[in-house]
Design a protein around this nucleic acid. Structure first.
Length: 312
DNA sequence: CGGTTTTGACCGGCGC
DNA sequence: GCGCCGGTCAAAACCG
């Protein structure tokens, strides 16, 4: 597996959606496998940030809207997924784990999101960038792309979220720049770009046609800025600066990074597999960081140990 | 009025 | 070479 492949995987997660009426921290929590180390209940955001914060705080911190939800499920560098399985790229051992789907809809979606996107993505990755457009804009033919310049693959990861709302709040501000019909799916795919200047992070959001309640979000690139302070609840106040301003060289932003880790530890037959995975990955997290992705050497800078392990 | 969304056109890669 | 398709552009519409 190349370094790129290591970094270019998908993280599929599905979450329990939440109704606007639901009370935070209750129904939105779901049980995770019984881990001696982790709490029995872990919310999506908890997992995301791997912290001991309560869901409410997290929600506030990230401006998780009612639409946002908990996520579970995995990753992957999907080149060999099949219809019924979710292939989880094991960044740890150069092997892959095939997670049998406990839930067909989810698995299908996963493979669909992962592979499909991966395939088209890997082909090209032209990132327009604001600067590129810089001089003048002659209609649409101003794709002043440098010839022969191969586009670098941006780290990508996707996750599935069970939600009624397509665009989930993740703390960043996004601007929609396109929408396309998805082949073989009645649901369109939306393209978003981080509105922060100079931040080239993009994300695509589409709904699984097999399970309309699942939203597949694919992030591409890494934020080079902290979470907008305008967020409700001000994430900046709750997270250490190091978390909010990850080094551009350290890989995806914090929460994303966590996403990427967990998948590796998923095992087969985890009916609620993805969910369990979350809870059981906090420790392994470090392993991954250690053995597999040297690029993430700054991880510890970004993520204090307390975020890597669960505090009682 | 500035920022965001919508939406049809355009671009470029890929397969045939 | 052509058509398909995913991704992006950008003008217009929309919104607070």
């Amino acid at each position: 597996m190349s370094d790129h492949e290591f970094r270019d995987f998908y993280y599929h997660a599905s979450a329990f959606h939440n109704d606007h009426q639901r009370s935070v921290g209750e129904t939105d929590m779901y049980r995770v496998s019984s881990s001696p180390v982790d709490p029995s209940y872990m919310s999506f955001t908890d997992c995301l940030h791997s912290t001991s914060m309560d869901y409410g705080s997290l929600e506030k911190a990230f401006g998780l809207s009612p639409s946002s939800s908990e996520v579970f499920s995995s990753v992957e560098g999907c080149n060999q997924t099949t219809e019924q399985q979710v292939v989880v790229g094991d960044l740890g051992n150069n092997t892959s784990e095939v997670m049998t789907n406990p839930n067909s809809s989810i698995s299908s979606s996963s493979s669909e999101a992962g592979c499909e996107e991966d395939s088209d993505k890997s082909k090209k990755d032209r990132q327009p960038k604001a600067s590129e457009d810089g001089g003048e804009s002659s209609k649409k033919g101003n794709k002043a792309k440098k010839k022969g310049e191969k586009k670098q693959k941006e780290p990508r990861f996707a996750f599935m979220t069970k939600s009624e709302v397509d665009h989930l709040e993740d703390g960043y501000r996004w601007r929609k720049y396109g929408q396309k019909a998805v082949k073989n799916s009645p649901y369109p795919r939306s393209y978003y770009r981080c509105t922060t200047q100079k931040c080239t992070v993009k994300k695509r959001v589409e709904r699984s046609f097999q399970d309309p309640s699942i939203v597949i979000t694919t992030y591409e690139g890494q934020h080079n800025h902290p979470l907008p302070t305008t967020l409700r609840g001000s994430a900046a106040a709750l997270f250490p600066p190091s978390l909010l301003t990850p080094s551009p060289l350290a890989g995806p932003s914090f929460q994303h990074e966590l996403f990427m880790q967990m998948p590796h530890y998923m095992t087969n037959n985890q009916a609620s597999g993805a969910v369990s995975m979350f809870a059981e990955n906090f420790s392994p997290f470090q392993q991954y960081h250690h053995h597999q992705v040297p690029d993430y050497g700054l991880l510890h800078d970004m993520v204090p140990s307390r975020f890597l392990k669960h505090e009682p």
